[in-house]
Design a binder for these strands. Structure first.
Lengths: 65, 65
DNA sequence: GCTTTACGGAAAGCCTGCTTGACACGAGGG
DNA sequence: CCCTCGTGTCAAGCAGGCTTTCCGTAAAGC
């Protein structure tokens, strides 16, 4: 699933680790989502969207791959 | 996680099975989401929200239980 | 009574989300 | 040179999403 996590994270000057800590997940989880290895859970997706002031639908493209 | 699936499904006069077929999942999956036994995946959550013309954030309350 | 429809839920199994811990690499700074 | 930082990825393990199959129950219609 394509997502805007990487772009938004970088635009905010955050490392994967910093974002992970802010959301209470592991760095590997953020990395896996950014590299498309797996999709976040609904709960994490909502937290990610909130963190960047976006909606879930804006942030995650459910229709890709 | 609390959700508005049951209310919206009933408001649209759909059975759990009819909704399940419309979304390509099993009836038990819809039942489990409505009864709170587990949370939907991000993909299914987006499909459910779309089906009822809502946003994910309107449809699912990530902050409960 | 019998049948159908709708719902709740259990069991087993598969795949995926997430964890910790570890290793490797490149870029940059001293 | 070395050290640190940021990233990519692997392995093992646990929890949870989803499937199929199955059983129980209650309401509604004939």
């Amino acid at each position: 699933m394509r997502s805007a996590v990487r772009e938004l994270r970088q635009a905010n000057g955050l490392s994967q680790e910093a974002l992970a800590r802010a959301l209470g997940v592991s760095r590997q989880t953020i990395n896996a989502i950014e590299t498309g290895r797996y999709d976040p859970s609904l709960r994490l997706a909502v937290h990610l969207a909130r963190h960047f002031g976006r909606t879930v639908e804006e942030m995650f493209d459910v229709d890709t791959e």
